[in-house]
Nucleic acid binder design. Sequence first.
DNA 1: TTGCTCCTCACGTCACGTGAGGTGGC
DNA 2: TTGCTCCTCACGTCACGTGAGGTGGC
Lengths: 255, 255
Amino acid sequence: MLTIGQLAAHVGVTTRAVRHYHQRGLLAEPDRDASGYRRYDAQAVVDLIRIRTLSDAGVPLARIKALIHAPPEEFSDAIAEVDGALKKKIRDLAQHRRRIADLAAGGGERLFLPAEIVAILDQLRGIGVSERTVQIERDAWILVVALSPEVVPEWVQEKTSAMADPKFRRLYLACDEALDWDPADPRLAELADALRQWESPGSADRSRPDETLGNLAAVSLMTSHAASWPPAWRRLSELSPDHPEPGSAAGGQAG
Amino acid sequence: MLTIGQLAAHVGVTTRAVRHYHQRGLLAEPDRDASGYRRYDAQAVVDLIRIRTLSDAGVPLARIKALIHAPPEEFSDAIAEVDGALKKKIRDLAQHRRRIADLAAGGGERLFLPAEIVAILDQLRGIGVSERTVQIERDAWILVVALSPEVVPEWVQEKTSAMADPKFRRLYLACDEALDWDPADPRLAELADALRQWESPGSADRSRPDETLGNLAAVSLMTSHAASWPPAWRRLSELSPDHPEPGSAAGGQAG
DNA sequence: TTGCTCCTCACGTCACGTGAGGTGGC
DNA sequence: TTGCTCCTCACGTCACGTGAGGTGGC
């Protein structure tokens, strides 16, 4: 016969856990000895290991209580279900390992943006765009993805084909340099003109009305986001009334 | 700018969780709009995803709070540690899958007894011992393993070599048949004589004092366990004063 | 006698869940 | 006007952990 401490130690749980299982009605209260101590037989070891095996597998105590007294068929069905849940949990944990690895790798844009957009940001870095501007572009994309995920494929397409145009790349770099200019700087007007003159390579292929309607929400979102832009860019935006977002992720425009 | 619902939905958490992170100081409280609603920018999305990635990986919120403001080196050290914990958790879950599979497989003695003892029990079943007697033997072993694990290898050895002796096997089966006899049945005295006459094959090789001292605790344990035996076996025990446990797991005796 | 185990309350913990009661936006 | 989202308390949940205060066994 075992004391509660011997039972608990052998099964690898605390005495508090054993008492908790008594309280919840999972494990039968054993007889007491002369001094009121609980005395356990071998069956209690078997019962406790069963309880622990299920509990360690993630089964809630209330469910374990029901399963203990369930017919064999219901029990084995439940076990199959628990096994499926464990498999899923293992897959999830493997996924979490990949995600914290992304976290460690420099902060990991992969965590909060789809791969195509990460590729665009890397391309910007590749042509020499400053990290500050890349961050502004990144933040714009994050908001677009969060609020209007349905426009993302189209916008990515436009941005990608724009990036293939050397003129666009030059304009983007020019906006990048203008980041800290005085809003009264006369060169901003020139830059605004150049932006207006640049034509998106893909823009001729699309039907205007669809695009306008589809982007309405996203454009208004970008406009509110523009509040956090540097002064020079806000001025640039005022100088280009057709283009409310000079440095944004919005399709076909330099930033 | 995002409302709390939009932010939460995009990151895949509840609004309650976001407010909880504000309360715990993990996520900065953003500015409010005219009607007192929280308004989030892209950085909040980034911060929340970071928090969630760590939390999903099992890092306590208090630790996440410290890590967010930690230098990069401490951060990556912590990530490595978290990754190790995840690896361990995955191994543990794989182990739990194996254990619930044992549970489903007929209740699984493998769960609460070492393999060599399971083999002994299966051998008993193989020679035709009743399931009731096997259960008594099983329960005896469970108590021995729990209370005196150090004697187990020796007792297993003795029991295994005894089982190789045809005379022992016949005696064991005889005790099995005697399970429900009347305690006054005269055949019990004959059986007790036969038990006394049987000599363990390995007993001549051992030094008596060592054995006696080493088994003292276990023997007294078996004696208390004997209280749960059927009446005929208790009588058998009285008739064999040298052998207090006729049907027990104790080395060298028939059961 | 000392240290260890056992006993029974009963409050604490962790990361939120879940109404309760009320207001703002479309 | 209706339904949905937002707001702030504040108590509830799950599986125990952790003393508090006291007694029994070696």
